[in-house]
């Protein structure tokens, strides 16, 4: 991973303790975030998010499928993350698999809510076409192009942006004569329905280095972490998912403290993302 000398490690630790990090940021400052939408024309929605040197692309494809028999009134969403070996040599072959699955599980936890769908960022019932028969399957594929720490936050932001860029084709349904018939579906290639993204959360990862915690850690800072807590927060300030990474134990009061800091930071992040999305959409229209 990152080869750091003892001096460099001290420098990182000391900087974080003094609230002035190696790149001049304060502990709770994000790197500049840049957003592009519609980067993949073949997908229903896509986005590229750059957070410092971290670079990710998310594409969203919608396909018609059959709803699960246990939940006939809900569509399906699947999140896959791919760590490409172009980002780091460690991701070659099966090396990226562990990180990929860790990221996809964490993102699914953040976006899909509980079993009954409460707190889900993506409203699964909006994906239904004919109850029990036809629904939209949403495939969210993330690709890590370049990794400089804080992949989870970047991917979550990219998913949020990509969802706001997603158009689901309008469908006309012919139910057929008898209720047993498979309904005929006519997919329009001109009319698209916009996706409601008001409930989609953002993820804020707080990385604990020494006695302090920082947001948006770079790869070097991440190599010095003892543990990290990723909190996903929606617009209303409710927590919709939480994952702890890193092995070291944390005092419960520290975790609660981290949650309240994450809540505060996330509201800034949401407004930054909103204005970036608006700017990116305006760019795309030109």
């Amino acid at each position: 991973m990152v080869g750091l000398s003892t001096g460099e490690k001290h420098f990182i630790h000391g900087g974080i303790a003094q609230d002035l990090r190696s790149d001049g940021r304060k502990r709770l400052h994000f790197r500049p975030i840049s957003v592009e939408t519609g980067v993949i024309p073949q997908a229903n929605g896509s986005a590229r998010v750059r957070l410092g040197a971290t670079d990710v692309i998310v594409s969203i494809k919608a396909e018609l499928g059959k709803p699960n028999s246990f939940q006939p009134d809900k569509g399906k969403v699947a999140i896959f993350i791919d760590c490409s070996p172009t980002a780091a040599p460690e991701f070659e072959g099966r090396g990226g698999e562990e990180l990929s699955s860790e990221l996809s599980v964490a993102l699914e936890r953040c976006f899909l809510g509980g079993k009954t769908g409460t707190g889900a960022g993506i409203d699964l019932s909006s994906l239904i076409v004919v109850e029990g028969k036809v629904c939209w399957d949403l495939y969210i594929d993330g690709l890590v192009i370049s990794s400089d720490g804080n992949l989870l936050d970047a991917l979550a932001a990219a998913i949020k942006v990509a969802l706001s860029n997603t158009g689901i084709p309008k469908v006309n349904v012919d139910l057929g004569a008898s209720p047993d018939d498979q309904p005929e579906v006519d997919v329009s290639d001109e009319e698209f329905l916009q996706f409601d993204t008001s409930g989609v959360p953002v993820v804020v990862t707080l990385t604990k280095v020494g006695r302090h915690y920082i947001v948006d850690a770079t790869l070097e800072e991440e190599s010095q972490m003892s543990s990290a807590v990723s909190v996903s927060v929606n617009r209303h300030g409710h927590i919709c998912g939480l994952t702890k990474r890193g092995g070291a134990g944390l005092d419960p009061s520290v975790i609660l403290d981290m949650i309240s800091v994450a809540k505060h930071v996330s509201q800034n992040l949401i407004s930054v993302l909103d204005s970036e999305i608006a700017a990116a959409e305006a760019n795309a229209d030109e």
Partner: peptide, 30 residues
């Protein structure tokens, strides 16, 4: 578990009072 709105799991070392693993799904207030 199949019909829960949300769940929270904690793994901890009680004598040290440290949380080693914590996951949360669903929508929660603080």
């Amino acid at each position: 578990e199949a019909c829960q709105d949300g769940s929270l799991m904690i793994a901890c070392m009680p004598a040290r009072y440290e949380v080693t693993q914590l996951t949360l799904t669903g929508e929660w207030s603080t």
